[in-house]
């Protein structure tokens, strides 16, 4: 410990506080400073949302303002029409399907695997656990090329299998997070159930799983929004526009060489952030706790 133990020193008698150290003054200073900084941070997002309501001529002339002079909601239907005869309804349906099924797969698998690591003692447990943590550091690039070759041979390009199948084993992040959570559940409960004649599977289903709700909600939120934003893997496997996720569609839609209707691009960009923000605002507490207790990256 680099800090010195100061407790033995005598208490210093302080002179009366000068005006600039008074609580009210400091409070105003604090809120002024932090609120300004927060506003600067939020400005680009607010600007995006505001711009999505600006009429075409205002987008380049009234740039710095967040609010449009004349609101122009027409950008939304214009953008929703999509491209190549495929509307954003299709892209949202694809994204919703993938994010929901993908989340379901990886979170439920993660819970099962986490229970195995946290509560069952078996040969090689420590080794596999260490390997699992190591996989967190693997660059996707070393796995993705051979995966692609195999999935291509299987004729699975332009299907969701290559995106969903690797999720059957859960995600190392969520497994780790749920393990941490299970460790905080008292073992007495398991023991009581075991004395009552329950086996490991019964303990998992009836004792542990019901208590895992907060951890599972946290994992599900993260999984949903990572899947929603996923780009590289869908980019490689989904090449036909009717399978595009919102992320892929936005990229094509905003291609500077093709599209010039910036109002529509801003509208669809802002709209794509909506699900993520709704989840963020409704489950903020879970997210913050998930990140702070396990060091998950967001």
């Amino acid at each position: 410990m680099a800090a010195v133990d100061y407790s033995a020193r005598p208490v210093v008698v302080r002179p009366p506080t000068p005006w600039h150290q008074h609580a009210v003054f400091r409070s105003i200073l604090y809120h002024g400073l932090v609120a300004t900084a927060a506003l600067i941070m939020l400005y680009p997002i607010l600007w995006l949302v505001g711009s999505s309501f600006k009429p075409p001529d205002e987008i380049w002339t009234n740039q710095t303002a967040i609010l449009p002079i004349e609101p122009y909601p027409q950008n939304y239907p214009n953008g929703w029409a999509g491209f190549g005869g495929i509307s954003f309804a299709t892209f949202y349906r694809n994204s919703l399907f993938y994010a929901t099924l993908g989340t379901l797969l990886s979170v439920s698998a993660s819970a099962v695997v986490a229970y195995g690591f946290a509560r069952v003692r078996f040969r090689g447990r420590r080794l596999w656990f260490a390997i699992m943590l190591l996989t967190l550091m693997l660059p996707t690039q070393v796995q993705i090329i051979p995966q692609y070759i195999v999935f291509k041979q299987l004729g699975w390009l332009n299907t969701f299998y290559p995106l969903l199948l690797p999720r059957i084993g859960g995600s190392a992040f969520f497994i780790f997070m749920i393990i941490q959570f299970i460790r905080s559940i008292p073992v007495d409960l398991d023991e009581a159930a075991m004395i009552d004649g329950a086996n490991k599977i019964g303990i998992f289903l009836r004792v542990i799983l019901p208590q895992l709700t907060p951890a599972i909600i946290t994992a599900a939120i993260f999984s949903f929004y990572w899947t929603w934003d996923e780009f590289l893997v869908p980019l490689i496997y989904l090449n036909s526009p009717e399978l595009y996720l919102v992320s892929l569609a936005l990229r094509t839609f905003s291609d500077p060489s093709g599209q010039t209707d910036w109002g529509a691009i801003f509208a669809m960009s802002a709209l794509s952030l909506l699900p993520v923000f709704v989840i963020f605002i409704s489950f903020q507490r879970y997210l913050v706790e998930g990140i702070s207790t396990t060091g998950l990256k967001g």
């Binding site: 941070m41 939020l42 680009p44 997002i45 600007w47 995006l48 929004y225 990572w226 929603w228 934003d229 780009f231 919102v246 992320s247 892929l248 936005l250 990229r251 905003s254 691009i265 801003f266 669809m268 960009s269 802002a270 794509s272 952030l273 993520v276 923000f277 963020f280 967001g298």
Partner: peptide, 14 residues
């Protein structure tokens, strides 16, 4: 908030 939308295409486009 900026981190929650961080990896999205929308932010990159913006």
């Amino acid at each position: 908030a900026p981190s929650i939308v961080g990896g999205s295409i929308a932010v990159a486009v913006m």
